[in-house]
Design a protein around this nucleic acid. Structure first.
Length: 889
RNA sequence: GGGCGUAUAGCUCAGCUGGCUAGAGCGCUACGUUGACAUCGUAGAGGUCACAGGUUCAAGUCCUGUUACGCCCACCA
């Protein structure tokens, strides 16, 4: 439609900024309950409200966007619920840091209420950056339905769930050994502890027996905890120490006497066979302590400094300083035996990246045993499918060994636990409302962030209200997330879905690859190897980033990313742009662009049939690939189709008709339009901006329309094919033989170093008359693509008047480059001999196979026939090579 | 200690349930600005599919073992 000259290169910036607001304003991202259509829904893995967009988000959200746009174009009513997570610990420490840097009063000075207010203000001002950034990427999120895990409705859901699980007896409060982060000063779940191998020291030292008859040698990596020792254990069957059981030792540095006990936990093979027992600071020792009714001596404060129980000498010292001090003192007492260098496994706090302490503390837990059962079955029975499927193994392993979930956190930002204590009566009340009466004080702790995220698939849809949305869009269809949160989030959502909705939360889970830098390192801010996606979008364009990252993403492995790889997507966008630009230079859009109805199908040329048929294949492959969550495969298919089949071959071949008579030109324009509009729609989920822009530029769509409302291409129906593909069944082969011939002709030119611009003559000796006839009909195009002055075609033996000519043997026949005096006989012979040998080799293999009775009896019919046919072809080809050799001699 | 994954061209990776001469992108070499595109075109070089066995008419593909790297899980002092 537009007569405006399109710029030579695609400029993404303006196009992206133009379309996103239009899409958003037009409401095409909004999913409504629509009984006339099947529903398709996705919930976004809610990024931290503190988060900023990184490449992991780009991959993850591009995939979701592809699914959403694809399904929408397929005719589903789609809804993509976006939102953010309040991320308790992360946000609290972020805001605290901000306050500290600004020199403002911090958390403790402000007090609970003021601090929470401050965080809300911060959230309002600075939070949700990532949500704005996602728009830059082009994501078709239903922004009208944006949610935050601490919204009123979602908070109601959290409270209801807590109360229900408490009433069922799944949630309980108890004194247990928990993981403690000394920096965040809160309990953590097992999943928030990262085990790392670190080098450390293994200290061996003596504990003197109280009766003065000698000593035991114990070994530990944590000498500072000896201040909390309440026993030494030996194995009951260990003959070496049998006589000592029941005796006591004088615990150095403390003045305490502690017993020598017999317990299975002591491994006679390990160290000296004697193990110090610190029940308040080690999970194993905790169990031993319970079995033997030992004293639980907590020697550390919440910030991992030593407390008064550790002894006046150590009080207030940091745990590591204390360790050093203890070693010095033991050394002075001449108790040290040896210090070994070892590598051992230490638990670190996920957030603060410091070693955690295991401590005894009163916390809230969820017993997950019952919840896990239907969730395990759902994946086992294939109601929920993981892609790639192997992740289900990880899932089963964790679920089948599931531990109680520590859900209380000693921070302020989050959902405060709906439990109240009555100090007068020692009662605990758990409920949705504040209990009546006096003396009730609410639990100070808040819930683990994941205690709200695990409800996300239904809480965003209004649960516990029975909303229309829930009825229509729940269960959601697909979930796209990283395998790193399979325990944190995926598994728990499945459990919550069954427990509270009595239904699975999603049908498919696609686990994305993890993005690394070019050297394979994890992307991280501290390494400075984490490119800002917005910069990448500025440089290359959002479509280019999206397409590149999908194109390079390996199947179930990590992605090696570097910005330069976005050139692939940028170049591809530019290629597409220029293909459209080319089309537009030949006039405005034709009437048949949707269905080819404006032209007589019987008159379609071979090339046109070829491209239409290729288009159909591509459509089938892409829909199949997306059905199977093989995004990269889909990207490769369409890239290949556009660049190679369409641009390199079809457009080039079409030029002869575009510059020919008017009828030919018009027909080819229709086909170009037909294919281009399909390409744009096919590509739209991957590259939303440029495809929308081009669909309008080309006049396929008018003002107010959007490509996202167009149907996703389907393969031509069987009944349509005869009218379009009619009549020759081998037409595709002939067209491909033509292209092979053109390649061979160009290769000859290159081999003889004839400049591409120089017009030359070719001769084609075809294998048969059918091919001859076909190629005769195509001669104009062949000439054009070979930049030839003349191409003669016949089945007759060819001999140039000046003698033999250089040639190439192809499926259609032999193509000659008859330039007088040009031929280098030796080179030609060498070339032909090489080819002859090659064919001999292949034939030998082929004949061996076909004379192998076992092959003939066991291989399937189809394979055998193909092998025979193949051998035939080889024989024919060999004959032609030999003929060529003969003419040269 | 257990589990999972990966090993294919200089680099990054495809190669589905085994079946013609193993492919793509980038990079490299040569030529080239023909009226879509130098973010381009044409032609080309480049691979004993980690190693060793085995199954099979047939193995990059399946099995076993080995090596290397990566990840996850596990309370071991």
């Amino acid at each position: 439609m537009s007569n405006n000259e399109m710029p030579k290169a695609y400029e993404p910036g303006a196009v992206e900024n133009k379309w996103y607001p239009k899409w958003e304003a037009s409401g095409c991202f909004h999913g409504k309950v629509n009984p006339d259509k099947p529903a398709y829904s996705i919930v976004i893995p809610p990024p931290n409200v503190t988060g900023i967009l990184h490449l992991g988000h780009v991959l993850n959200n591009t995939l979701q966007d592809i699914l959403i746009r694809w399904k929408k174009m397929q005719g589903y009513e789609v809804c993509w619920y976006p939102g953010t997570d309040h991320a308790g610990i992360a946000t609290e420490s972020k805001v605290e840091k901000t306050l500290r840097e600004a020199g403002k009063p911090g958390r403790d000075e402000l007090g609970r209420e003021k601090f929470i207010e401050t965080v809300w203000n911060w959230k309002k001002e600075c939070g949700g950056t990532i949500i704005r950034q996602l728009r830059k990427l082009g994501t078709a999120c239903d922004w009208e339905r944006e949610r935050f895990t601490m919204d009123a409705g979602l908070s109601d859901a959290v409270r209801k769930v807590f109360v229900e699980l408490y009433n069922k007896g799944y949630i309980y409060r108890g004194q247990r050994m928990i993981n403690w982060c000394p920096v965040a000063q809160t309990a953590l779940s097992d999943e928030e502890v990262i085990h790392k191998d670190v080098s450390g020291k293994f200290y061996h030292y003596k504990y003197p027996l109280s009766d003065g008859t000698g000593h035991l040698v114990i070994a530990t990596t944590r000498p500072e905890t000896m201040l909390g020792d309440s026993a030494v254990a030996v194995h009951p069957g260990d003959e070496r120490y049998k006589s000592l059981i029941g005796k006591t030792i004088d615990l150095p540095l403390t003045g305490r006497k502690i017993p020598i006990i017999a317990d299975q936990h002591a491994d006679p093979e390990k160290g000296t066979g004697c193990v110090k027992i610190t029940p308040a600071h080690d999970p194993n020792d905790f169990e031993v302590g319970k079995r033997h009714n030992l004293e639980f001596i907590t020697v550390m404060n919440n910030d991992a400094t030593m407390n008064a129980k550790a002894g006046a000498e150590f009080e207030g010292m940091d745990r590591f300083a204390c360790r050093k001090k203890v070693i010095e003192l033991l050394d002075e007492l001449d108790l040290m035996v040896k210090i070994e260098e070892i590598t051992h496994n230490v638990g670190f706090s996920e957030r603060a990246d410091v070693p955690i302490e295991t401590m005894i503390s009163a916390q809230w837990f969820v017993n997950m045993q019952e919840l896990a059962k239907p969730a395990i079955a759902a994946v086992r029975d294939g109601k929920i499918n993981f892609h790639p499927a192997r992740w289900s193994k990880t899932y089963f392993h964790w679920m089948e060994n599931i531990q109680d979930w520590c859900i209380s956190r000693q921070i302020w930002w989050g959902h405060r636990i709906p439990a109240w204590y009555n100090d007068a009566t020692d009662e605990i009340f758990v409920g949705l409302e504040v209990p009546e009466g006096d003396n009730w004080r609410q639990e100070e702790d808040v819930l683990d962030t994941w205690f709200s995220s695990w409800l996300w698939p239904f809480s965003v849809q209004g649960w516990p209200e029975k909303t229309e949305e829930l009825k229509y869009f729940y269960p959601t269809s697909d979930l796209v997330t990283g395998p790193d949160i399979i325990f944190f989030w995926v598994a728990r959502m499945i459990m919550a879905g069954y427990e509270f909705m009595d239904e699975l939360p999603f049908k498919n889970v696609y686990f994305t690859s993890i993005i690394r830098d070019a050297q394979g390192r994890k992307l991280s801010k501290s390494l400075g190897n984490s490119p800002d996606p917005l910069d990448v979008i500025d440089t290359y364009g959002a479509d280019a980033l999206r397409f590149s990252i999908i194109y390079i993403a390996p199947v179930g492995m990590d992605i090696r990313y570097s910005n330069e790889k976005c050139e692939l997507g940028r170049n591809f966008a530019n290629k597409l742009w220029n293909a459209c630009r080319f089309r537009q230079m030949h006039g405005s859009v034709t009437a048949g662009f949707r269905n080819l109805d404006s032209i007589d199908h019987a008159k379609l040329t071979a090339d046109e049939k070829w491209i239409i048929s290729w288009m159909d294949e591509t459509i089938i492959m892409i829909n199949k690939a997306l059905d199977d969550f093989k995004f990269h495969l889909a990207a490769h298919e369409i890239y290949e189709m556009v660049w190679s089949s369409f641009c390199d071959w079809f457009i080039e071949a079409s030029k002869v008709r575009l510059y020919g008579d008017e009828a030919s030109k018009q027909q080819t324009l229709v086909v170009l339009d037909f294919i281009l509009f399909k390409i744009l729609r096919l590509l739209h989920p991957f590259m939303p901006f440029i495809t929308e822009e081009l669909a309008h530029q080309m006049g396929f769509l008018t003002e107010g329309e959007s490509i996202m409302n167009e149907a996703y291409p389907k393969p031509l129906k069987d009944k349509e094919i005869p009218s379009i593909m009619n009549p020759e069944p081998n037409i595709i082969d002939l067209v491909e033989a033509k292209f092979q011939l053109i390649r061979a002709g160009r290769a000859l030119r290159a081999q003889y170093e004839i400049p591409p611009g120089k017009k030359i003559n070719y001769h084609l000796k075809t294998v048969d008359t059918e091919t001859e006839q076909f190629m005769q009909g195509e001669v104009a195009g062949i000439k054009l693509m070979l930049n030839a002055a003349e191409v003669t075609i016949s089945t007759a033996e060819f001999m140039h008047e000046d003698g033999p000519a250089p040639a190439q043997i192809v499926n259609a026949g032999t193509i000659y480059l008859p330039l007088a005096g040009l031929i280098n006989i030796d080179d030609e012979l060498k070339k032909l001999k090489k080819q002859q040998n090659q064919i001999f080799g292949w034939m030998k293999g082929s004949q061996a196979k076909l004379s192998n009775e076992k092959f003939l009896s066991k291989a399937p019919e189809k394979v055998i026939n193909e092998a025979r046919e193949h051998l035939n072809e080889l024989e024919m080809k060999l004959k032609r090579v030999e003929e060529s050799i003969a003419t040269l001699k």
